[in-house]
Structures are given as C-alpha cells and as structure tokens.
C-alpha cells in the first residue's frame, strides 16, 4: 500500500472540508479524486502532500508515518493547476531545482534534467523562461520538475484545469502513457468525469467532504453506489421514477413486454447522436433518450409519434452498502 489515509477530519472555520475520510491507494496505480468543486478533493490531496495538515487523522506514505512531516520531508511530487512555474528560472533550472536542493553533482543534474525534458518533449526549450512557453508546455515542465526528484508519489491538482479543450485531451493521453512508462503511484484531482473515466485505474468520488465511492471506472459507471455518483459520472434521466442513463433506454415502434407508452415531443441532433425528448402517457414523466442516427431513422421518429420505452439494464443504483 503506497498511501494510507485514515480518519482525516479538516475544517476551515465553520466549513467542514473533510469528514472522517479514509483511503488506501495501492502502489503504482493511477488514481483520480473526482468530485464537484468545494467537495474536499483538493484538500485531501494537499494533506497528502503536506501543504495542509489535518485536524485529526493520519497519513502514511510507503509505510512511513507522514501526518506531521512538512512537505520537504515527504517523498512527494506536486503539480499545481496553475503550474507554479518559477518565473525567474529557465526551464532547465526549474526542473533542476529539486536536484540542486539535494546537492547532486552538476553532471548528474544535467543528465537527469535533459532525460526528463526529453521525456516531456521540451528538450529544445531548456533555455527558455516559463513565460515563453504555452500553458500545455508549462504544465509538462511542472511535471518534469516534480518527477526529477524521483518521488514515491506524484500528486496532481487539477493539472489540466487551466488548459483549453484540445490541449487537455492530448495531455490526458500523454499522462496515461507516461504513467505506464514510469509506474509512479499517482493521484490526480479533477472535476471532469470524462477525464477521470478515461485516464485512471481507479476513481475516488468525493462530495461534501466524504468519499462516496471507490472503484474502477467501469464499475463506478455501471454500478454507482448512489444517485450522486450516478449523476456525477454520466448523463441521467428519469423513467418511471427511476434514474436511468439515457442510452440505456430502448425505443420500440410497437408495444412490448414491460414497455411504457410515450409520445415524442422533440428531436435534437447533436453530432452523431440523436436526442429524443418524450412524454409518457401514464405518470407524465419526461425522460430523454440517446440514440444513434440509424436507430432514429429505423424508428422513423418525429415529434408527435407514439413509441414504447423499456430499460435495457437492471435498475442502476445500488443501495449504499
């Protein structure tokens, strides 16, 4: 077990940021802390890094009791949302910082920094200042800087939050590949469920200072522990008083077993998918359904037409165990 957090409580004034949080993160995994902003995920990350200290509870890193260690005594690399680049130092100097603090021989520093810059594809920018780099490049530099000291744990706080959509997507794939290559235990904070689902081995959903659920991305998507997790991880709609994913509703042209009759009220095409808004005849609930274009054509959908609905999966929410 790489990181073991137990019984953490943390308040800021009257605000309860973390409420009795315990978490085990296995070595070598890429874990996402996912949740809405203000939910406590960044606070938990900062407590693991030693940038905040808990009111009660303990943090162990690779078996070492670390709760009250200052950040410089933990073997932890930290990457900030806004890069926290040392503005007055070149890219090379930024990456070399931790090694210089550790008084490594100059030749060793040079070799290690150049290796890392190559790894993050910044070798030709070694002599530039951070202000001369794009946001994505700065974040890669920050990552190289954190990795330079060979931390046992790498922590990233909304690492792609300040970047635009295209760069975000690229860096996401790149982070996944980097992790597979280096195998450093990594925790990253995000409020973007797509990012968490795509990149991580394991997702920890945090809301209101509590852990809602921990599990592999597919498990969480398919078997959410509660409504919150279900809503947070993907699109939902209500059918017959049940929360359902809109792509898990089947549309039939004729009455079928356990199917509910409904009328199409509106059709919207969004890229490759078609969204059908419906009103059920009984109960008058208004679910919406995601279909492919072909499905919509085969059903010959148009507003006013009657269809029959049924869910293709068993009800999705599990009782919280």
């Amino acid at each position: 077990m790489s990181i073991s957090v137990s019984g953490i409580n943390k308040r800021f004034g009257d605000f309860v940021a973390l409420d009795n949080v315990s978490l085990e993160v296995p070595t070598g995994r890429l874990t996402a802390l996912l949740g809405p902003s203000g939910g406590g995920k960044s606070t938990l990350l900062r407590i693991i890094a030693g940038l905040e200290f808990p009111d009660t509870g303990s943090v162990e890193i690779e078996g070492v009791q670390a709760t009250w260690l200052p950040p410089q005594k933990r073997s932890v690399g930290f990457v900030f949302q806004h890069y926290a680049a040392f503005k007055h130092m070149t890219v090379f100097k930024n990456v070399a910082f931790g090694l210089e603090i550790r008084r490594k021989p100059r030749a060793e520093i040079r070799q290690r920094v150049m290796e890392l810059l190559e790894l993050v594809h910044l070798e030709q920018f070694a002599d530039r200042l951070p202000s001369q780099l794009s946001g994505g490049q700065r974040q890669r530099m920050a990552l190289a800087r954190a990795l330079a000291v060979q931390p046992e744990v790498l922590l990233l706080d909304e690492p792609f939050g300040a970047l635009d959509a295209q760069v975000r997507k690229e860096l996401r794939d790149w982070l996944r590949n980097l992790h597979d290559e280096m195998n450093v235990t990594t925790i990253f904070v995000t409020h973007d469920q797509e990012e968490a689902l795509e990149v991580s081995d394991e997702i920890v959903v945090i809301n209101g200072g509590r852990i809602e659920q921990v599990g592999a991305p597919a498990d969480l998507y398919d078997r959410p522990a509660n409504d919150f997790v279900m809503k947070f991880l993907g699109p939902v709609t209500t059918l017959d008083g049940q929360l359902v994913r809109p792509h898990d509703i089947e549309l039939l042209a004729a009455p079928g077993q356990e199917a509910i009759e409904a009328t199409v009220t509106r059709l919207t095409r969004v890229g490759f998918e078609v969204r059908a808004e419906l009103r059920t005849s009984k109960g008058g609930s208004e679910p919406w359904v995601q279909l492919t274009r072909i499905q919509a054509q085969e059903l010959d959908l148009e507003p006013g037409r009657s269809v029959w609905l049924r869910t293709t999966h068993a009800p999705k929410t599990l009782a919280v165990s």
Partner: peptide, 13 residues
C-alpha cells in the same frame, strides 16, 4: 494505522 497525536508545536503550511 496508528493515529499519531499531533506534535506539541504543529507545523503550519
């Protein structure tokens, strides 16, 4: 994990 008591002088971030 054994929950440690906070040190007499708590570190400040």
């Amino acid at each position: 994990p054994e929950i440690p008591a906070p040190p007499r002088r708590r570190p400040r971030p």
